[in-house]
Design a protein around this nucleic acid. Structure first.
Lengths: 332, 332
DNA sequence: GCGGATAAGTATCACGTGTCAACCCTCCCT
DNA sequence: AGGGAGGGTTGACACGTGATACTTATCCGC
């Protein structure tokens, strides 16, 4: 191979047409399926030619004429990127590829406007939102012509929100061995935390339901000394503490802080995390954690994804069932 | 807002031209930097009009005519996506935005060919590779016209590879309290592990250098029972074990397995992880871990990024200095 | 006064595609 | 025989941009 390498000219639909002995318009019609039905013979000729040339339509040309790209943006929260989200991204990537879409992963930056602008630049055909976007931002995307997935019923009861359910589950788990002073431990990080508020609300609701005082919110950095300081600040009362954590990571920090303060676990300090990470089950004491089953969400995303190519008018739109279970460890 | 929402027609360079009272060609010239030969007055008119309309050129149109998109792909290993990589992605995203590039994050799938094809579909102007791509794949990308970043000197000594350094550092740290039976613990996961081999090689080299037998490679799943089984299988000898781990996560699993086997840490079992994660410093015993300073890599990427717009011919290309330090914990 | 250089701006092409409107041909009905 | 119907196919336009080559006006030197 010489130093002078050609820019690898790719075949165009014109090349396919020439090889198949038809016009470019015919090629376009057949390859996009939408065309009035051509006889099987012509179809076969075109498909064979396209295959031989390994023809792949230019995304740029296509985007230019349709005003829309072949891109699907997945908007991912910028918090710790656990295997939970990783699996979801992989899954969506595969499904999208089956629809001929290219997936773009975008991390939600601390500047929402900038993030939105970056997404709009792609002119994506759809945006998968994990619950980061506000109603107005979803509106903007929708008006730009992008499908926002998963579609959310307009009048969704916030009580059915997955994070609300998680918060309630945490509180219930923490309280199953008698009343305790409830706390919600948020992640202290420069990054955004889109899910925290919902989980905190869920804990509050559960506390109200049990006739307990509203839980306090504390911020736990992922560093021993500062985490210990933060926990010590709320430890004054002599009632045993029960901390629902944003995360298994935060839960590990709370456990470490409790240990540093000489608290017995779970007698003096009980802790529940979220995500049921592998690490949480490997540390000592083993974490009690809320596992999120995202199969329903996956299913919903898949169906919404499918309805992009075949624009279904307006199916019943059942709400995503929040499916959650508790992994019992040694911390609650 | 009625149900009939216009697709939000965006301004084109023609609109700018009309508003500025010049031709579209003039707008194109001025906006693409060629405008040095236009008088200041005209420049100002065009720039003002573009600003007023908030004109942003269509990526599709631009890509169509240039044959290249405004996209920069970051290829990220599909292993646990730690804050290390997260920071790097954020950093690159910001820098790329300053160059007017859109960043696309792509996780390296288990199928390299598919990943490569997906990247090529974007016709990216550059690809940031964290050491996943092989020489042939880099060649393909280069031939397609994409800059591969960071550029690697052709005849790089594999001994200077960052992963090799990490492996050597692990071995040295594990051996600082006398000779032990060295092991390398790889992650058992369905995902690819692009960095493991280099780290293993580094440990082997260090062992040879010390006149010790070559370390064995074991696979440690992130699950207590199976991890324990895996560790027990190599524990037969009575010499104390010293395990260099792919990861802090793996290190935590090894520690847990050792605890399950009744081994004292670090007397019977010493462990070193990689990444110096926050969690590793919160568990008990606190992990000893190798921290990777990626400032040099960042710097290199930034400079390579800059040389895309201003195509520098061939600067000296200094190798990226592998900068590593050991966080001393309680496990080695 | 005149040829030629230079400045300022623009007409035009090319990129690759989707799709509308039109065309040709055959068949059938009256 | 004439004409409508309709299946099969295609020509032509539009999308928005970057860049080349070209035109026109101005100015300089002799």
């Amino acid at each position: 191979m010489t130093a002078e390498t050609k820019p690898t000219k790719r075949p165009t639909s014109f090349d396919v047409a020439k090889l198949a002995g038809v016009s470019r318009a015919t090629v376009s019609h057949i390859l996009n399926g939408q065309g009035s039905r051509f006889p099987e013979e012509t179809r076969a000729k075109v498909l064979k030619a396209a295959g031989e040339l390994n023809y792949q339509p230019s995304p740029a040309g296509r985007a230019l004429v349709t005003g829309r790209s072949d891109i699907l943006v997945i908007l991912v929260p910028n918090t710790t990127f656990g295997s939970n989200l990783q699996d979801l991204v992989d899954n969506v990537t595969q499904r999208a590829a089956a629809h001929g879409l290219s997936v773009v992963v975008r991390f939600a930056g601390s500047n929402p406007g900038e993030t939105l602008a970056a997404i709009l630049r792609f002119r994506p055909v759809a945006v998968v939102d994990m619950g980061i976007l506000g109603a107005d931002e979803r509106e903007v995307l929708h008006n730009s012509g992008a499908a926002v997935i998963p579609r959310i019923p307009a009048s969704e009861d916030p009580t059915h929100d997955i994070n609300h359910v998680i918060g309630r589950t945490m509180a219930k788990t923490l309280l199953r061995n008698g009343p305790r002073q409830l706390l919600y431990a948020a992640l202290l990080d420069e990054r955004l935390d889109p899910f925290g508020p919902g989980r905190f609300e869920g804990m509050k609701a559960a506390a109200r339901h049990e006739g307990l005082p509203e839980p306090e919110r504390i911020e736990i950095p992922l560093e021993l000394e500062r985490a210990t300081t933060a926990l010590a600040a709320v430890q004054a009362k002599d009632a045993p503490l029960a901390v629902g954590c944003y995360n298994d990571d935060v839960a590990i920090a709370v456990v470490a802080a409790g240990r540093a303060l000489g608290l017995r676990i779970p007698e003096d300090l009980s802790v529940v995390g979220v995500d049921a990470t592998a690490i949480g089950q490997l540390v000592s004491p083993r974490l009690t954690s809320v596992r999120i089953h995202n199969a329903p969400l996956m299913e919903r995303i898949a169906s919404d994804l499918a309805s992009i190519s075949h624009p279904a008018p307006a199916p019943p739109l059942p709400a995503v069932r929040a499916d959650v279970s508790v992994i019992s460890g040694e911390t609650a």
